[in-house]
Write a protein that binds this DNA or RNA. Structure first.
Lengths: 209, 209
DNA sequence: TGGCGAACTGAACGAATGTTCAGTAAGGTG
DNA sequence: CACCTTACTGAACATTCGTTCAGTTCGCCA
């Protein structure tokens, strides 16, 4: 955690709002709760962000910056550079790379879950960018001969991306049934080792046609 | 849609609450909105369900019944019966079977998304039942020689299940980027054809070791 | 028919929420 | 020093929410 004294009150409010929004949902968190968590008055929150909606937008923009940095790093057509980026721990996915670049306990994954499931415009925009990156990555890997193209490339890219996001969206429930946080270092390794095996060797043994 | 005149006012309130909860989230929907949608007074809602929390619990129990019926149908160790259940349209998954058994425009998928996101006990219980069904199904298919066991069976069952749920959780965003609702008949066929191909033939063409 | 209970309404209440506002402290600039 | 902008507080306001409650309608049964 960053030393709070190094941050302006505005940044402290934004960070506490992000944490509380991610944990309970924006609707369930009041301005007074955010102010108390940041150690300021409720009036100051409105002073800095205009309204609760303005605070939400500021948090969205702040989180959006994190993802922009992630996607920018993948803006390459060089298959070798791409594989170097993806080969963090053997598996390789956007979600894995994102989590690896976040401090442990970061509220960003939980907030991402809220944004995607809220169905508002911020979630749509983020998803579109993520999908565009997935399409470019799969196309590059196919061109490099590492990945099979598939019958329907648009759906295949979406399929791989949705599977990748699933571990983020279902983190808490997966931790419950598996007994370990899938976003921890060991959990990620376990998860993506199985994913890699499934994608490399297949899962079914017979042709069902 | 069921003819509203065949339902008691209590059932109408419950169904409208389910629809509004699924669309906007329980916190964003007021008792007065539900009452107006059901054509009754706000007092009657409280009269029948005690409180808003009681109404939420009633909706949870009602939706839970839908899933109980689904899971009960899969309570079999006979691989042939299992494959007959799963082979609805060539692909075969719990989510696909669930959606196929729901009327078009049903609020249940969206409500499922809310329940899993909320992280409360109702979501945990539902997820555990779904996971138990997934484990039993994969074990049966492995025993029948249809499915490869994998290194880590617990994670493999969770991986397949999470991928299956992803299309439900990301329905709106996938519809946006793909241009068609993945839960429609054509969308399901397109999605699960690609999933089947990926699981049968694999996605990667080289060994990355 | 008379009465009892369930269904139902509409007004009202208290609590909580987002927002407004007057006022204070501080820090930089002419 | 005087002045202005900015950061910040605490009280207050209007609205909306879940909930309560007295009273009304209506169907069933003795």
């Amino acid at each position: 955690m960053v030393d709070r004294r190094d941050l302006t009150a505005r940044a402290v409010i934004r960070d506490e709002a992000l944490r509380l929004f991610a944990e309970h949902g924006p609707d369930a968190v009041t301005i007074r709760q955010i102010a108390a968590a940041a150690g300021v008055s409720a009036g100051l929150v409105v002073h800095h962000f205009g309204s609760k909606r303005g605070l939400r937008d500021a948090v969205d923009a702040h989180v959006g910056g994190v993802f922009d940095a992630l996607f920018d790093a993948f803006e390459t057509d060089d298959p070798d550079a791409l594989r170097r980026l993806l080969a963090g721990r053997g598996g390789g996915s956007l979600a894995e790379t994102l989590v690896a670049g976040l401090p442990p306990g970061s509220p960003v994954p939980a907030y991402l879950r809220r944004v995607l499931l809220a169905g508002d415009q911020a979630g749509t925009r983020l998803f579109r960018r993520w999908y565009a990156a997935s399409q470019r990555i799969t196309a590059t890997l196919v061109a490099a001969g590492v990945m099979r193209p598939g019958e329907d490339p648009a759906v295949r890219a979406a399929f791989l991306m949705a599977n990748d996001l699933a571990v983020l969206l279902l983190r808490d429930q997966l931790a419950d049934v598996l007994g370990a946080d899938p976003l921890s270092a060991e959990g990620l390794a376990r998860w993506f080792a199985e994913a890699l095996a499934a994608y490399r060797d297949g899962v079914l043994t017979v042709d069902e046609a």
